[in-house]
């Protein structure tokens, strides 16, 4: 249970801090898109003979490549973010289905449910090590670039005129989001991971009057939602991933009430 709480809060914090920028840029759908791209990557790993756990190492570069593809299409400016994400989402998922179908009949069966919904209670020490490394990587990258990323999110053109390397930051944001999603799929699954990105950030957006406060609130909501959801699911003996999302959804509803007042 302690490992599950550590994993859940790490994923909650990572997704929230990236989610602030993703949501503010109107790219909320990208979490879903990259999660489904991760499915394509995991399926490719399985086709190559890896276990579900080791297939993550194939999904990682696959999903990062998809994120850079979306970033490239967005930069060309001829397609809206949701359309670009939708195309990559569908193609990656279709590839995943194709890869699974191409596996030999003798291959061991895959627990699709664990890929779709995660298995946070089955997180092992090695998974925690990987998450710790990703936490350090993403935390450092975001701490170093936060002020420039914020400026580029406000207005890319003005930021560029002030010398901010907007394109490189765009690529970095989507690539880090891809990395975090692939790591998070193990714990919360493909179907629910985008909620970790969108809900805390959207709730914090209603409460904060400056971007750094929004970021702080989002992290607190992500970590708090994950911890409270896990504890509730443990005591009520219900699905952990779904309970976490429902707790985050309740925070969002409370945020709406607070905002109205």
């Amino acid at each position: 249970m302690i490992r599950a709480i550590m994993a859940g809060t790490a994923v909650g914090a990572l997704c929230a801090v990236l989610g602030v920028f993703v949501v503010q840029r109107g790219l909320s759908f990208i979490g879903d898109g990259l999660a489904h791209a991760a499915f394509g990557g995991i399926a490719l790993g399985l086709l190559l003979g890896a276990s579900v756990s080791h297939a993550t190492w194939v999904a990682l570069p696959f999903t990062v490549l998809v994120s850079l593809g979306i970033s490239f299409v967005l930069r060309r400016g001829r397609m809206r973010g949701d359309s670009a994400t939708g195309v990559f989402f569908a193609v990656s998922f279709a590839l995943g289905v194709l890869f699974l179908g191409l596996r030999p009949l003798s291959a061991p069966p895959v627990n699709v449910e664990s890929v779709l919904f995660g298995s946070i209670l089955a997180v092992g020490p090695q998974d925690l090590l990987v998450m710790g490394a990703v936490c350090v990587l993403v935390g450092l990258a975001m701490a170093i670039t936060w002020t420039r990323l914020a400026y580029a999110t406000f207005d890319p053109e003005l930021a560029k005129l002030s010398g901010v390397p907007v394109e490189r930051l765009d690529d970095m944001l989507l690539a880090l989001t891809a990395v975090v999603i692939v790591v998070a799929v193990k714990t919360v699954g493909i179907a629910l991971v985008s909620s970790f990105i969108v809900i805390p950030a959207a709730t914090a957006r209603m409460l904060g009057r400056s971007l750094h406060r929004v970021t702080l609130y989002a992290v607190l909501l992500g970590v708090g939602g994950a911890a409270l959801g896990l504890l509730l699911s443990y005591h009520l003996n219900v699905a952990s991933g779904a309970t976490i999302i429902l707790v985050m959804g309740a925070f969002f509803a409370l945020g709406l009430v607070v905002k109205r007042r």
Binding site: R148, Y151, D155, L211
Partner: peptide, 21 residues
């Protein structure tokens, strides 16, 4: 520019001074 960005006039002006938010 993004009308929905959580920012004050002060932050916007200082961002141009510093080249970062």
């Amino acid at each position: 520019f993004d009308q929905d960005f959580p920012a004050t006039a002060l932050e916007l002006i200082v961002a141009n001074l510093r080249g970062k938010w």
